[in-house]
Design a protein around this nucleic acid. Structure first.
Lengths: 227, 227
DNA sequence: GTCTGGCATCTGGTATGCCAGAAACCAGGG
DNA sequence: CCCTGGTTTCTGGCATACCAGATGCCAGAC
């Protein structure tokens, strides 16, 4: 009986979840700022396209509205939210706050081996010249920040940052391509890793915060295309 | 025509919103930890009690699930979430992160008059002996923190903290009643106000963070009744 | 040509019905 | 008495029908 290796069967993801994922990926992948007017999502149209009834669509849209991806005008329709520069900056600031706290908590609580493996996990940061494959680096960049947040060990912070990340992901990538930010960014990452390894909570927190706020300031200066 | 003073009419709050508010207040006001087993919310029962159909109830429950107040087990029912000590501590840590960032931003951006009015808005903090009316003080306490968050001027941080606050409100009140926390708390508030007035961003941030993390540590030590 | 008011139509909000999965219950065998 | 299998009942997931508000169009007045 023991070696039958029965695993719990999948609860067959609900249509609502499927609709949510489909819509979310559609929204995050589209170029919101390319379209001139507002982008409206038609419930009946979506229901027909996805082949399900309006009910799960509506529930998915409710969640997306909660998360700030769409806005619902009663009797008018639901529209994809175009985030303003100010909102993006605010998200990055909130993110900086949470990630710097995660860095502090990591210094206090993360096990030694987890801190030690940072350096091994991101060898790119110590090799210089990532410009030949900026896309890869951009991915490593995001993984790095998620790793720090995870090391903090606080599930609430991880959740909140997860939501913020989806909103800001695109921005972060484009910001990297402007000026010398990529090089600066890497240097800052290295210093953050060193601070974590030394378990210097104050320093790690400060570096992470300044790194995040630097991005916020950058968007504040050069992000006028968002409005 | 100009002096008719026509104001936009109210869009007659949707049933979904009404159901949401009813359920949320019911959940936050109930004593979750008194009940032994899980508390289940029956869709049909709620629908009959509130006098609306199941649809708005379901949509309200979806939002509440997003916000972490209820948990939905497919085909089983939706249950009121009992937060563990660990989760509460995590929320307070996240809150501390966000509020300390708000304090920093307030030092940088808030207008002088807003910072100056802090001292006037919370005279209780400068008078000592608030123990005769601990409930009032507890309210002032919460208003104080919300004020700081508002002074930060970051809408994202305000939103996130708003959600966290509802979850933690009860805890904060009971924590005040344990030991000498109220007196300490007031002293810390005064120092925070002074730092803000001096626009000392580093100090204000640190004080707010330590104030919040102090509460987290307190719950960590004495919050075993939550599990 | 422009403006206005009514009408056709579309869209989201709500109510309801049906179905499958889950729990509770019950009867029969050991 | 316990265990087991089936059956009943209940619950939530989904589909659909209907209603009211919003929009757009068009005819008629000027």
């Amino acid at each position: 009986m023991e070696n039958l290796s029965i695993k719990p069967i999948v609860p067959a993801t609900s249509l609502r979840t499927l609709a949510y994922e489909a819509l979310k990926s559609a929204i995050t992948n589209m170029d919101i700022y390319g379209a001139a007017g507002d982008v409206r999502l038609d419930e009946r149209g979506l229901s027909q396209t996805l082949g399900v009834s309006r009910t799960p669509i509506r529930e998915a849209l409710t969640v997306l509205e909660q998360e700030g991806f769409v806005r619902n005008e009663p009797r008018r329709g639901v529209f994809v939210v175009k985030k303003t520069k100010r909102e993006i900056v605010g998200m990055i600031q909130a993110w900086a706050a949470l990630e710097s706290m995660a860095a502090r908590l990591a210094c206090a609580n993360a096990p030694d081996e987890d801190l030690a493996c940072l350096r091994r996990t991101f060898p790119e940061f110590f090799e210089g010249q990532p410009f030949d494959h900026l896309d890869e680096y951009s991915e490593a960049n995001i993984r790095f920040h998620q790793k720090i947040i995870k090391l903090g060990g606080c599930a609430v912070i991880q959740d909140l940052c997860g939501n913020l990340l989806v909103h800001v992901r695109g921005i972060r990538n484009t910001a990297l391509r402007q000026g010398e930010r990529a090089l600066e960014s890497i240097r800052e990452h290295v210093r953050i890793i060193e601070a974590l390894e030394a378990r210097d909570a104050d320093l790690a927190e400060r570096l992470v915060r300044e790194h995040g706020l630097g991005l916020a300031a950058h968007v504040e200066r050069y992000g006028d295309h968002l409005d």
